[in-house]
Design a binder for these strands. Sequence first.
DNA 1: CTGAATCCAAGAAGATACTG
DNA 2: CAGTATCTTCTTGGATTCAG
Lengths: 121, 121
Amino acid sequence: MNMFIPANPYDMNCPSRDLLDLIGDKWSILIVCCLQQGPVRTGALMRQVGGISQKMLTQTLRELETNGFVERISYPEVPPRVEYRLTELGISFSALARTMEQWVIAHYEQILLHRDQAQGA
Amino acid sequence: MNMFIPANPYDMNCPSRDLLDLIGDKWSILIVCCLQQGPVRTGALMRQVGGISQKMLTQTLRELETNGFVERISYPEVPPRVEYRLTELGISFSALARTMEQWVIAHYEQILLHRDQAQGA
DNA sequence: CTGAATCCAAGAAGATACTG
DNA sequence: CAGTATCTTCTTGGATTCAG
């Protein structure tokens, strides 16, 4: 049934557009990077990713789950304990996410300086 | 004057957050990839990036310009002719953008399949 | 052709309150 | 602790129109 239609992000109707959105999403990137060293609990994620609301955290985790990036692990305990773990696909993506993070960190100062320049001019 | 405050995307108040948004932006990525082989005219970009509105094209190009990713080249002709060209920083980013594009294309099918699975379950 | 400005609808995201 | 639901706010982005 699968026609092997190749992905083409330049086509506005290609589903890969959504994927591009997902992997470019700020929260996705930060969350996935947090999960690189191993499973992390919900509350810990909340604390690590500064400023994320509980809603956006859950929502992003669900999207990552739906697309096969993370696995949700629920322990039958009281109070509840839930962890999220990268899948193989998620690990693959986390490398990219980390690259993005590093790129930003590496060029941060240069870009800020250019911005100030542009403002002054 | 510069204190060399390191970038920290996990801090909601760090300007690197905005950068992360910019380099993760769908339009940014597609546009920058279009510019990889050399300067491109506005109209050509419009046609290559399927579904982008004139507003978003201009807006994204301005942001890329402000942050030092692209240069705007305006020729004194009638009718007007404008080209956009990657700066050195832009070229650096374009490598990352291309990686993102390629990652999506490479994992496209696997992710779609997982989505269907999740739906069926 | 390039692009700026306006208007407006749709969607994103925060805050809050509540459940298991 | 983890997650859902609702409400409200406001940003995003498209369509349109006008100008150089």
